[in-house]
């Protein structure tokens, strides 16, 4: 049976617990990955990112001195960030809604609650592969589009690309729903 072949992807695991790092690495290898680097905290991970071209980062929350949220913000908005667009899967035991929203607002792509399973981790990896998200830059946020569902937005349209497209098309003809969706999906 055919499935996604992950062997060319580079994964960076960031977790202060060596057993968790070993577990995630074991799962990734069992899923066919070859290139997996790891780091014990956000600062080490950021250094690692300079020489390791990670395609996906799997990151814990509770770490010191630089925790998962600080690391995500550094990757997204740090002036010397090697890859501000890299997909990040936040792996954490913090499953409260406020924490999920905080992680989303820091710029993570996916959220996976511990304890993890191979199926759960693969589902998040697949989601990152299948649903490439456009990035949004506002004065207060830089990261993947937080609007996951493609439902019509009733508020004031503030997105530059959509506004420009709508303005351009207003003089010509209306956008079809598919075109609007395509714009929203990037």
């Amino acid at each position: 049976m055919a499935g996604y072949n992950l062997e060319r992807l580079n994964f960076l695991i960031v977790d202060d617990n060596k057993h968790m790092r070993a577990l995630v690495k074991t799962i990734l290898h069992a899923l066919g990955t070859k290139n997996v680097a790891d780091a014990a905290d956000g600062a080490d991970a950021f250094k690692e990112l300079r020489c390791f071209p990670a395609d996906i980062i799997i990151c814990d929350w509770n770490m010191s001195p630089l925790d998962g949220m600080d690391f995500v913000r550094l990757v997204r908005t740090g002036k010397d960030s090697p890859n501000p667009f890299v997909p990040i899967i936040m792996l954490t035991g913090h499953t409260e809604m406020s924490r999920v929203l905080e992680a989303r607002d820091a710029g993570v792509h996916e959220f996976l609650a511990k304890p993890i399973s191979a199926k759960g981790l693969y589902a998040r990896i697949r989601s990152v592969i299948e649903n490439p998200r456009p990035f949004i830059r506002t004065p207060s946020y830089f990261g993947p589009d937080r609007r996951r569902r493609q439902t019509p937005f009733k508020g004031k349209e503030r997105r530059k690309a959509v506004k420009e497209a709508l303005q351009k098309n207003e003089d010509q003809f209306s956008l079809s729903q598919d075109e609007v969706n395509a714009l929203l999906k990037g």
Binding site: M1, N5, L6, L9, R158, R159, G186
Partner: peptide, 20 residues
Amino acid sequence: VEFITPPNKLQSKVTMSAGG
């Protein structure tokens, strides 16, 4: 609000295959 489409590196590196 600026809307950016990042390069999709994953699509070029991940294939659908029998060994997947």
